[in-house]
Amino acid sequence: MNALSRRRWATASFHVSAGGLSLLWLLPIVLVLVTSVRSFDDIAAHGLGSLPHSFTLANFGQAWSDGGQQRALINSLLVTVPCVLVTLALAAMAAFALSRYALPLRRTLLLVMLGGNLLPPQILLIPVNKLTELTGLYDSLTALVLVQIGFGVGFYVFVLHGFMRAIPAEIQQAAVIDGASPLQIFWRIILPLARPALAALSALSFTWVFNDLLWAITVLRSDAKMPITAALIGLQGQYVSMWNVIAAGSVIAAAPTVAVFLRFQRHFVAGLNLGAVK
């Protein structure tokens, strides 16, 4: 076998292996999608893993209204959207100051921010719970927003710092000569150049916060304030054997993050690659 044949064989083997792994990864997703549009009688008669013999969208309506998915989705958006906006705004300003100006102890500050993200969140559950109780914020969406911002801003500062530091200094020097203030440099020059990184972090932050369960059940208690991930647990308890309704609720919970990722997919990949190289 010559070199060309070996190369073709290796390429074909790679594609077959990658295709098989992709199908294996997609199989649970397809199962959930198919189950979400089957009736309960169909699943009870033929089994969960059988081919569908029915098609209905009533499961989504049942999960949306009776299962509380509508209220939970609103709660998740009320937490996620402010978290993404505030966290990225704070992180962008901090990264700009730490990367473009010779501030004292800036390396130490970056290491402290990065070190905070290396702590396992499990060891902080009780302190965070007690702190929200002492401040009177326990069982409120405000507490969840503040916790998500506090634990997310350090990582985003670290990523944006590496991106902004690689922006040529000559651009900022030319703006200073033209009389631009630090705020104008940040708003009109640095932020537009950092758009790929900001878009990537927006998609990443939205996914993390929206899908979070740990902090939600730590600082919240009322069912009416639970986000979508915690509501799925309640949905499973409410519809114990109705897998079609539970699957429909899972699809509803996954739809926003999938939509955000598809919208920012190009920026997501480009932003992470640029941040890694720079």
Rank of each mutant, 00 (worst) to 15 (best):
A169T: 13
E170T: 07
E170P: 09
E170M: 12
I171S: 03
Q172P: 12
Q172M: 11
Q173M: 14
A174P: 06
V176T: 14
V176A: 08
V176G: 04
I177F: 07
D178L: 03
G179P: 10
G179A: 04
A180Q: 07
A180L: 03
P182G: 07
L183E: 07
Q184P: 04
Q184G: 02
I185V: 14
I185E: 13
I185C: 07
F186V: 13
W187Y: 15
W187V: 08
R188Y: 05
R188F: 00
I190L: 13
L191D: 05
L191G: 08
P192H: 13
P192S: 13
L193R: 10
A194M: 05
A194E: 03
P196I: 08
P196M: 07
P196W: 03
L198P: 02
L198Y: 11
L198T: 02
A199V: 14
A200H: 11
A200T: 12
S202D: 09
S202I: 04
S202T: 15
S202K: 02
A203D: 07
A203T: 12
L204R: 09
W208Q: 13
V209N: 02
F210R: 03
N211P: 01
N211T: 04
L213Y: 15
L213I: 06
L214I: 07
L214Y: 15
L214F: 15
L214C: 02
A216C: 04
I217A: 00
I217C: 01
I217T: 10
I217G: 00
T218Q: 08
T218W: 06
L220M: 11
L220F: 04
L220G: 02
R221P: 09
S222D: 12
S222F: 07
S222C: 10
D223M: 01
K225S: 04
K225Q: 11
M226Y: 03
M226C: 07
P227N: 10
T229A: 08
T229H: 01
A230H: 04
A231L: 03
A231W: 00
L232D: 01
I233Y: 03
G237C: 06
G237M: 05
G237W: 08
Q238W: 01
Y239E: 11
Y239S: 03
V240H: 07
V240G: 13
S241Q: 12
W243I: 14
W243P: 00
W243V: 13
W243E: 01
N244G: 13
N244K: 06
V245D: 09
A248P: 00
A248S: 06
A248E: 09
G249R: 01
S250W: 00
V251S: 05
V251C: 08
I252L: 08
I252W: 03
I252C: 04
I252S: 04
A253R: 02
A254Y: 00
A254C: 10
A254E: 01
P256I: 01
T257H: 11
T257S: 14
